[in-house]
Design a protein around this nucleic acid. Structure first.
Lengths: 150, 150
DNA sequence: TCGGGTTAGTTGCCTGCGCAACTAAGTGGT
DNA sequence: ACCACTTAGTTGCGCAGGCAACTAACCCGA
């Protein structure tokens, strides 16, 4: 139980700091950064909206609006899929990539400063492992829930 | 870095589940539950608004509105402080306590189910320790920031 | 004792985001 | 070939919550 509360507090404070640094220095919210980062990791710099939804931990509508915003700023653009007219690829523009590259050091420094440096090597490994288990486990139960719903 | 991403995902999914269970079964958001729980832990069942703000990880305005809502539902009431007319005590009513007692098992089960049971004993201890460090460390830097601002 | 600074709480305004309903497009059974 | 079912994405709506500005109360030095 104390683990739970500590996790809540830790998450809240780390996220708040990272987000405030990112927004003041580069005008990017944390989900926006996540989106750009995930896009940049792709060879074609693009992902489907649903994939972004998964990547940015956002609901479909949230992704739609976030991409709207990023598009208005010229950081991404929408591209229709030739094979399936329902899917829309969101593609990172050069401007978007530049913005990401500019923001990257800030983000990296933030994570180090607010998380990595406060823990020793073993702690960090433990956290990574445990959180990985949690994320995976919940993904599984999600699948089960979806299965029994159908 | 993978620790960071895992933490984000784990937190998001655990929180979402807990919250949805709490709201559907008892009509309480997670912050609302936190508030009631913290109040119940006090001998006089009351806390100042600022203390609630800290407890519920909410901004002052957020607390004001959350307490407004809880008050409308009759779960808490506001009480002025005789010694200092600025401070307002938020006090848990009997109804509020009853609601909390009703919700408690749900919350406990949720935390077990979505977090504790997915980790073995050592993981859990590690998470508690590490997250404790993070929360504490960020509290410290908060203090520093406040100090240098003044 | 009174005027500037601080602190507790509230309010206006705005943004982000989830849910539910919807449209458009693809798929599969008959 | 057609119609029911699913899937991708978008929109209407509503709520939660942060920031900045405000009020009221306290505090302290001259």
């Amino acid at each position: 139980m104390s683990a739970w509360h500590s996790m809540l507090r830790a998450h809240a404070s780390v996220v708040r700091r990272l987000e405030s640094e990112l927004t003041t220095e580069h005008g990017l919210s944390l989900p926006a950064y996540e989106v750009l980062a995930h896009l940049s990791a792709r060879p074609d710099r693009s992902l489907r909206m649903t994939e972004l939804s998964e990547a940015a931990l956002l609901s479909p509508s949230g992704v739609t609006r976030l991409v709207d915003k990023l598009q208005r700023e010229g950081l991404v653009c929408r591209r229709r899929c030739a094979a399936d007219a329902r899917v829309i690829y969101c593609e990172l523009t050069d401007t978007g990539l530049a913005r990401l590259v500019a923001a990257y050091p800030t983000h990296l420094r933030g994570v180090r400063q607010h998380m990595v440096d406060k823990l020793d090597r073993d702690d960090l490994a433990g956290v990574a492992a445990s959180m990985g288990k949690l994320a995976e486990a919940t993904a599984c139960t999600d699948a089960e829930v979806a299965a029994e719903a159908s």
